[in-house]
């Protein structure tokens, strides 16, 4: 099962390496990771997605909490949540497929941010599901380059991960 964990940690040298190290050391796989400072410059927020069952997730959360610099950990997949990432794709767009690609971008509410006679560079914002759905519309051979950010996640409603 895919899980999304949010972590608030002290923005200190070495703190991130402790988290990444923990995943390697305990044999947990990170699928995506995003990290940046929050409104409080002393705090960073991470969003990690990974696959695992309940028992595994429980252990990961406990281990994260055990790190001295970690303030809060939450399983966002435990409730309703929103996730967003950004994907940039460079595709070959020539002849008939050029219009086809453009239509798909519109349907997925993406943007074409750079154009050459043979290529489109596309920007897409959304969830992991949306990314894979969009990728499915493209002919595999036409994809030149894909870059995806890690996902950022937040709970819906009143629930908040704050200090």
């Amino acid at each position: 099962m895919r899980r999304m964990i949010a972590v608030l940690l002290e923005n200190e040298a070495g703190a991130l390496s402790r988290i990444v190290g923990l995943f390697a050391q305990r044999n947990y796989n990170i699928e995506t990771l995003s990290v940046a400072p929050t409104e409080d410059v002393n705090l960073s927020r991470l969003t990690i997605t990974l696959r695992g069952d309940d028992a595994k997730l429980e252990q990961i959360i406990k281990h994260l909490n055990r790190l001295i610099e970690v303030l809060k950990v939450a399983d966002l997949t435990d409730g309703e949540h929103v996730e967003r990432g950004i994907m940039l794709i460079k595709v070959r767009a020539e002849g008939a497929s050029r219009a086809e690609v453009k239509r798909s971008v519109e349907i997925f509410k993406g943007r074409i941010i750079d154009v050459t006679p043979r290529m489109y560079t596309i920007e897409l914002v959304g969830s992991a599901d949306k990314f894979s759905a969009f990728m499915a519309t493209l002919e595999k051979r036409s994809i030149v380059e894909v870059v995806r950010s890690g996902l950022a996640g937040i709970s819906r409603g009143e629930k908040a991960l704050i200090v």
Partner: peptide, 16 residues
């Protein structure tokens, strides 16, 4: 040292 010992310490400090 902080890197080498990381998996086997409770915590570590590098004095800046």
């Amino acid at each position: 040292m902080v890197g080498v010992s990381r998996p086997i310490v409770k915590h570590s400090f590098l004095i800046k």
